[in-house]
Design a protein around this nucleic acid. Structure first.
Lengths: 120, 120
DNA sequence: GCTTGACCTAGAGTTGCTCCAGGTCGCTAT
DNA sequence: ATAGCGACCTGGAGCAACTCTAGGTCAAGC
């Protein structure tokens, strides 16, 4: 697949994908004869996972660490599982922050509606 | 209140609070005789709101715009309401991203457990 | 054969912090 | 008194994670 297809598939920007490759956050991507990136299915799945982890707050350093472990095979499964569980806790904290903010928004919007009611 | 108390209250770092004041993202804070910041209750509530909006992905530019509107009084209530509603939609998208990532984590962890079962 | 569009690279710019060096002030213990 | 401590101050450097720009290659369609 071409880079534009991967961008559409993963939601990452083309620049971000190139940046991830250069910084070693995803594995090196194979190239066509004229130097363009050609993504395998495995590349695509990997970037989809990375996009989801990143979108929910995993730092790049941790993402590349996860990639290193993956490359070392099944011996690192327990470590990888621990990383994903830790990330799950991050999700939980984010969910709580969203809920708190939502409550605050509802409260504020309610007060705005009162003011708008008086003005009318 | 002192800056360390505001940091504890809002979850923002002391550096971030100073940065917000310098960048005009929060209103200027009054000072004690020897130059230390003294936060009013209103300052504290405002920073609490900003912290919650920021934590859930509102850009700083939008936050200061919201502050500008607030300063212009009740005439801007409708605009401010629209901004908060738009932010509520951002919350919704974030919630969906968290849920997708959570599903992915559960799936991956399940597969890791299978591998770990075989290894045992 | 020339233009168009998708790709390439290197490098500069942006956002939003975070950290550091060097300095002030008020308080306590010697 | 003074020496040290802790909480604060400023200006500016450093950093993470993109995002954009300039200048270039190449294949395909008109």
């Amino acid at each position: 697949m071409r880079i534009s297809e991967i961008a559409a598939e993963t939601g990452l920007s083309i620049d971000t994908i190139r940046y991830y490759e250069k910084a070693g956050i995803c594995p090196p991507i194979s190239r066509s004869a004229d130097g363009r990136r050609l993504f395998s299915n495995e590349n695509c799945e990997w970037l989809t996972l990375l996009a989801s982890l990143r979108e929910t707050g995993m730092p790049l350093k941790e993402m590349s660490e996860f990639g290193q472990l993956y490359q070392r095979g099944d011996a690192t499964v327990a470590q990888r599982k621990a990383m994903l569980i830790a990330h799950g806790q991050r999700l939980e904290r984010r969910r709580a922050a969203l809920a708190r903010c939502d409550a605050l928004l509802q409260f504020k919007i309610g007060r705005y509606d009162e003011i708008l009611g008086e003005q009318a």
